[in-house]
Nucleic acid binder design. Sequence first.
DNA 1: ATTATTCGGTAACATATGTTATCGCCATGC
DNA 2: GCATGGCGATAACATATGTTACCGAATAAT
Lengths: 192, 192
Amino acid sequence: MLFHIKDQFPELRPYLDKYLEFQERLEVPAKTVLLEEGKISGNYIFVAKGCIRAALNNNGDDKTTQFFFENEGLTSLESFLKNTPSLFTIETIEPSIIYLLPKKYVTALLDDLSHEPRFLKVILGFLAERQLHYMHEFVSFIKDTAEQRYQNMLNDRPHIIQRVPQHYIASYLGITRVHLSRIKSALARKQG
Amino acid sequence: MLFHIKDQFPELRPYLDKYLEFQERLEVPAKTVLLEEGKISGNYIFVAKGCIRAALNNNGDDKTTQFFFENEGLTSLESFLKNTPSLFTIETIEPSIIYLLPKKYVTALLDDLSHEPRFLKVILGFLAERQLHYMHEFVSFIKDTAEQRYQNMLNDRPHIIQRVPQHYIASYLGITRVHLSRIKSALARKQG
DNA sequence: ATTATTCGGTAACATATGTTATCGCCATGC
DNA sequence: GCATGGCGATAACATATGTTACCGAATAAT
């Protein structure tokens, strides 16, 4: 929420720079858990290099719900705002470089920024974008078949397919890895 | 976004009251289209009485994506913020009383409020809530079967099932009305 | 090098869901 | 009163998707 804003909105830079020193830099291998499902989220997480996923345990099977790559940041929003246990586990997929900003600094920063009128539009745009993202995903489940959702991913976010193991992608699409494999071979048969 | 905030946050009332006079009150029968898919959204829509739905045409069949009831407000956010054609048709389900606030007043109000520090938290909380709503819907498609989604709706939003025709609910759940009917009779057989 | 894991493909069968068609009920308009 | 259309249930059949099991390639651990 913070550090990618810095580049897009230079006028806000002074507000943000003040907090950079409080970040903790982590260099971690693949499959490192950054936040466990059921725990309270204590940090804003920024991905400098690598990629990570959000996942939940659904009666024993692991369901991936989101992917994050370089220069994306995340919190378990619900956990962060309401101090409730996180619905998701946050875990690296590749070896990654991560920055953590403890929650107290994030809230302090928000307080700073609430006195800065220009910030309202920034935060509005930022949250609206996330909201539209989830809304599009949701609508896609209503209107599209699994095969169409895979095609959408191929078109809109091909880096996911290139970098992420297939079983994570399958659960993200709401299907099994067997079915995803079938979809791929059906598409290959159709055109190559 | 505006008029239900008024009651929750009395300190913002002066900001909001100024704009009340610009609302247009509409009393309309069921199946009245308030915004057509493909058109640019020109108003913030507030439901005073009745209920409405958002829907889209997917290769000829009508898919309902959201329901709104008394004291809820909506915009086609994407259309509103980016001035792009709305993805959805907005249509009344029951005879309804609707208030419209033209876009220019909404943006003027937001400008007013950007100078009011207390407002940032309000808008943050408000947008976060919408975002969490979509996220939960999205996650539910990943982890739940159609039958479980119907059960969730029964538990969390039973008024929808009571007031909305079944074929709208079916498309909202991502299934056909035939399948929804089967789910209902399966549940009835299980317990009654 | 050798083993153990992870990953992706495929087959056979089971279950979930879609499609089409038919029926009955009920509200509405004529 | 009688049509008409919207709505919901159900059946028969078709397709989509899940489950389990097995294979082989690539990668990591020893």
